[in-house]
Nucleic acid binder design. Structure first.
Lengths: 264, 264
DNA sequence: CGACACTTTGAAGACGATCAACGCCGGTGG
DNA sequence: CCACCGGCGTTGATCGTCTTCAAAGTGTCG
């Protein structure tokens, strides 16, 4: 009876949003609760894909390792999110491309892979899954873009703001939900670079001391995060942070090309 | 009657695979043919999302522009692929995040956005859409990872091999389907960097002269492209290219950490 | 032939990764 | 209670890679 143990989580599952409880509770009950200690793995890169998971409590880190031992954090999931949708629904992948590790004691609901394929035949649920995968793809695309266009400081600034929005924190003061080394790895940079980025951001209205984050210049933080960056409204990052020395200066010829392309 | 004009394309549409023709042809006929000259836009960054497209002929470039006029190529679609699935199925995005431009004269089938939402209620079609979006997300994720772990030369090598597989080219000699500047932009690097990367690759069994690509060392090119890189089989890139000077040397402490983590 | 787009090559500079060292803290054990 | 240790974060110095700027080579097309 997972809905008895984690009522708040279970009621807000995105993949079941809009589906009546009496319809999806029986489906959910087919899941098996699993308990993980901090540092334990849910699965590892290279393991066969057998299960679909919903995280009920605890943070999970999805990461991949290069042959040389470099570790890249692909995603960090919070309770209520699911793991493995995309891999299971992609016909030709049989093996996990990433490892999943508990960053703290965690509880998961585990389903056989086929369960998801069955459930996905349900039109409403299928649309929900489509929507979350699309959203994820969107986010990855944007971050990838940022990686080639923004300096480390800009990326960090953008990330902190997204963090604030997505977790519903208060911009004038919140605590980082995980440590800095992890965030750095999540952003594909070294801890040293991350640290130096924070230093640069202080003069731009983003203050981080220990684990405490504070955005000043609140007037610029409006509806939060633009289409460029993630969701809706105006983007404080792209306006505020552009005064940071950009990763690379603008090449005038590109600017010209852009202006010329207006009238084609 | 699009199926009369582009029979080969229409019969191989991924979103309809496994669905009987008599079922999807009526749906397809609701589409409207559109003709684009080279350089014309299908839509632009910031436009409202109104349509779903299937490319029937011609290459389309999806790209986004930063405020400074830098142009990032997000994707290049070949005939038979669709454009806009993810954006339409993501509830909160109302506006295109990227522009779509014809790289050559092109023909598209155009559907109202709602058409896709309707069609997606069809269980088979919905699974097909899920699968293609998952695959796309997967690819973006991998390339993003590559961006932080591989040198420019390694990325280019990896890309060329994927190109060869995905387009079904013969590894011992094929022609680049689009120019080098475009590939560079696709990989998020400058044309100069791309050019220098090709020079480095020559001593590693990948020869590119003008638009002609030739892989030597064929014995290493097996089933092509590993789970790390994209699809199935063995990955020539990760084995062959690791003798290239890596982007950054391996840090022994990380290697140790990795070896230690084997027994937890 | 000359204009133009594309590619290549060289030289300089900027940025991030790396290496090393230090400060800070919480926990452990004497 | 204090000394020691390991994990974490910061800072400084150095180095490699990619970007940038500049210039020259190649090809196509009018």
């Amino acid at each position: 009876m997972p809905e008895k143990i984690f009522p708040d989580i279970i009621q807000k599952l995105k993949i079941f949003s809009g589906v009546p409880q009496e319809e999806y509770l029986p489906l959910l009950r087919k899941g098996e609760l699993g308990y993980l200690g901090r540092g334990q793995h849910l699965f590892r890169q290279g393991d066969e894909i057998r299960h679909f998971f919903i995280v009920c409590s605890g943070l999970m880190q999805l990461y991949s390792e290069t042959p040389e031992g470099r570790e890249i954090t692909v995603d960090i999931t919070t309770p209520g999110h699911s793991i493995n949708k995309a891999e299971i629904l992609m016909p030709m992948s049989k093996v996990h491309r990433v490892s999943a590790k508990a960053l703290e004691d965690a509880v998961t609901l585990k389903f056989p892979a086929n369960w998801l394929k069955e459930v996905a035949r349900h039109p409403n649920i299928s649309l929900n899954i489509l929507s979350t995968i699309s959203q994820y793809a969107h986010m990855v695309e944007i971050e990838s873009e940022h990686k080639s266009t923004m300096s480390a400081a800009q990326q960090v600034g953008c990330f902190l703001q997204r963090l604030c929005v997505m977790h519903g924190f208060h911009p004038s003061g919140f605590t980082l939900p995980y440590n800095k080394a992890l965030i750095a790895s999540r952003l594909g940079m070294e801890p040293e670079t991350f640290s130096r980025a924070l230093a640069k951001l202080r003069s731009h209205g983003i203050e981080v001391r220990d684990m405490q984050v504070r955005f000043t210049n609140m007037d610029e933080i409006g509806d939060y995060i633009c289409g460029q960056c993630s969701i809706t409204g105006q983007c404080p990052t792209h306006s505020r942070l552009e005064s940071l020395p950009p990763a690379c200066g603008t090449r005038p010829d590109k600017l010209e090309r852009r202006l010329m392309s207006v009238n084609d």
